[in-house]
Nucleic acid binder design. Structure first.
Lengths: 213, 213
DNA sequence: GATTGTGAATTATTTCACAGCT
DNA sequence: AGCTGTGAAATAATTCACAATC
């Protein structure tokens, strides 16, 4: 696969993800080729940006014709690391955990939830689909036994940093953090924070500045 | 309040939100002053970045001493538009909607959920706390009656774009979109997308590039 | 002595323009 | 004729360095 050495920015990867979703919609509608302009329109960016982004990883298009939809889907899946299965653990079996667990995207894209943890004795032992909720005390042994690679934190802010440390020491390489707490982890660990407060504050900031027109 | 005319980037606003949370932690621990270095450490950025960000909106610090914690909290709340109440509607009373509705941040920060909609007759009429779930057919009248300013979409991808259009025509100025669909809306509408697929793909991309070391 | 506020320098990202295929 | 791929130009964001102030 074409894989440049230079650093790829987060915004580029986010756009690649958007292109993939646009291409899947195009495939569903029967399109065989897609121009950079068409992809840009659907993904909410510009045609030169699409070409630049894709050209970072290779030459996927045909001049005069555009990009072949199905092959480009395959290429983007390979670039994004979606051609293999990822073993995922859910830490926190509350409402956010439940919402994530039922989200069909996980299975569709090969993110397989192989372990669920909570510290509530009422919840431990319950099964969500095929997965039994384990007590957080069993974290290390289960993570190792299940060869978990990605952890999703949907616990309260207070326990999040300590749990993240434990998870990393148990060999997990990536964390998706829904807890409103900053995690300080070694640089080789990939961390991605999703913070509802921040997302809403972005809206209230923008509204505040635009409203007093 | 100091309010510059030039455009403020999204990343700046995200950092302001992070500073606010850091300051609240500092306040809880009894600190009266905080240096840019301390804020940077907690918010995960650099000291010059903190100073640059804050200086965009005014001069909040004391040279040689740092920033006064409590007053700066107030200033950031004012900048982010958190000193007033925002009237919010939830579209979609599924698991994601339920998770958001119970999130305590909403009330703490003045985001008041004044309307909840779903199209499932089983759900319409149920009450979540003080709010009765209304049928989506009543969208326009309820949004207007409740003077809703922010809509949160937790519906499936298919109906999302049409619902967003309706919501905007009913006068809503900002949308937080959890549906995996791109919304094309007039430029005066503030849209913020939260896409779980994208967040996970960011992790799998990074893992894929780092693992084959 | 410590730390802010900020113009200047640097680095990163996006946009442009056009040569090169199909 | 249409559209990609890409080096060059323009713009944006971050980092630096240091004078100003407490």
């Amino acid at each position: 696969m074409p894989s440049p050495d230079r650093k790829i920015s987060e915004s580029t990867v986010r756009r690649l993800s958007a292109y993939l979703r646009s291409l899947e919609a195009l495939e569903a509608s029967g399109a065989e080729m897609a121009s950079s302009g068409e992809l840009a329109r659907r993904a909410g960016t510009t045609a030169p940006q699409v070409r630049k982004d894709l050209s970072t990883f290779g030459s996927f298009g045909k001049r005069g014709l555009g990009y072949p939809v199905v092959p480009l889907i395959g290429s983007l899946e390979a670039i994004l690391g979606l051609t293999r299965e990822w073993r995922v653990a859910l830490l926190g079996a509350g409402r956010v955990g439940a919402a994530l667990h039922t989200y069909p995207f996980f299975r569709e894209r090969g993110f397989r939830i192989v372990a669920i943890f909570d510290n509530d004795p009422e919840k431990v032992g319950l099964r969500w689909d095929d997965t039994t909720i384990r007590h957080i005390d069993e974290l290390e042994s289960v993570l190792a036994g299940e060869a978990v690679e990605i952890a999703i934190l949907t616990v309260p802010a207070a326990p999040a940093p300590a749990l993240a440390d434990r998870v990393v020491r148990a060999g997990v390489g990536a964390i998706l953090n829904f807890a409103p707490a900053r995690l300080e982890l070694p640089p080789h660990v990939v961390v991605n924070e999703v913070n509802l407060a921040m997302e809403l504050e972005l809206l209230s900031f923008a509204l505040t500045r635009s409203e007093p027109r």
